[in-house]
């Protein structure tokens, strides 16, 4: 869907490349997260995809078409764009803000209006309540929702999101992340997502691109990156709780021992988790109930058992350094 081929960008007067020979692909329907410290080039990469910045070298292909050959304004109208500062037009109402891209594409008025109402509802806002308000009358969380709705207005297949949930408090951020992942399950957009928050990267990403000083340090699925960080930089970025993060991404079902192999009846004390729930939940339950094992269910039936020792062995195995 998006193919970035060996792009390099140096800003005038800068000593080193902002982006240095970066190559990657983003598959259709995936969220590709670019993570790294500030100044690592992640935002520059994003802005090169919709040509707000032109690469010095290298090519970007969108749906097989070279971005350089497309009209920048036309290109941008087919790519949703969300930035941390949101950038709602302060002199336009919420409805008018969401209707900007349909307006640029000259959609008929009633089609635009229907779409706007649908989008506001989709992102969890009441169109009757906020539709006619101006951006400054909204809370930070509401504005972020409007930003997402506006980017999705013309139903672009591709979205670029630059720290879209960066400006809200942690509680609202988690809620927005969850809601967005929920929407993504339905819409399957191809998304490039920039964040400096590694937890957000692991949570949102189907695929991670870890950057430092303009270069790609490591690429892979979150679990690949967590289980085998390429170097000390990535290990530092992931933090000291790498093992726990792995447990957050591991389903209980994948670590359990099947129920029929066990002599003892599992799930005593009613202590069970669903097979699809992360191992972290099972751990939490063990600690609460002071148990060393929990039953693993699929729906109502117990299919296996997850033990404390089993989890410990798994962490030792995947993080590789016995920590």
């Amino acid at each position: 869907m998006i193919r970035v081929d060996n792009i390099t960008k140096t800003f005038p007067g800068a000593e080193r490349h902002a982006v240095d020979r970066v190559t990657f692909n983003v598959n259709e329907g995936n969220i590709c997260v670019f993570a790294g410290p500030s100044g690592c080039g992640k935002t520059t990469i994003l802005r090169m995809i919709n040509r707000l910045i032109e690469p010095d070298e290298g090519e970007i292909f969108i749906n097989g078409e070279n971005a350089r050959t497309m009209n920048p304004a036309t290109l941008r109208r087919t790519i949703g764009y969300v930035i941390q500062q949101i950038g709602l037009l302060p002199h336009r109402t919420i409805e008018q803000n969401v209707a900007i891209v349909p307006g640029l594409l000259k959609w008929p008025r009633d089609k635009t209006r229907k779409r706007v109402l649908e989008l506001l509802e989709m992102v969890g806002l009441d169109p009757g309540e906020v539709g006619r308000k101006y951006p400054h009358q909204l809370s930070g969380g509401q504005m972020q929702r409007v930003g997402v709705a506006r980017a999705m207005a013309a139903d672009p297949p591709i979205m670029l999101m630059d720290e879209p949930f960066g400006a809200v408090d942690p509680i609202v951020r988690v809620r927005l992340q969850d809601e967005f992942l929920h929407l993504q399950q339905a819409f399957k957009k191809t998304i490039c997502f920039v964040t400096h928050d590694i937890n957000e990267a692991i949570k949102m990403g189907d695929y991670l691109v870890i950057l430092n000083a303009g270069r790609i340090i490591q690429m892979g699925t979150p679990i690949e990156v967590l289980t085998s960080p390429a170097d000390a930089f990535v290990r530092d970025l992931l933090g000291d709780d790498r093992g726990v993060k792995i447990l957050d991404l591991t389903r209980s079902g994948s670590l359990m021992e099947p129920a029929n192999a066990l002599p003892e009846s599992p799930g005593r004390n009613g202590c069970t988790v669903q097979a699809v729930q992360p191992v972290k939940i099972a751990l939490e339950m063990m600690m609460k109930k002071n148990a060393d094992q929990v039953g693993v269910c699929e729906g109502e039936t117990i299919v296996g058992i997850l033990t404390w020792n089993g989890i410990k062995e798994h962490i030792n195995r995947v993080s590789g350094d016995g920590s």
Binding site: Q85, G87, L88, L89, I100, V101
Partner: peptide
């Protein structure tokens, strides 16, 4: 950020001037 968002949505420089910069 308002201008950046306007450009990012696909407004031409003229549209940014007349729909964003001048009204504000």
């Amino acid at each position: 950020d308002v201008k950046e968002a306007a450009r990012g949505m696909g407004m031409t420089p003229k549209e940014v001037l007349f729909h964003v910069e001048l009204p504000l």
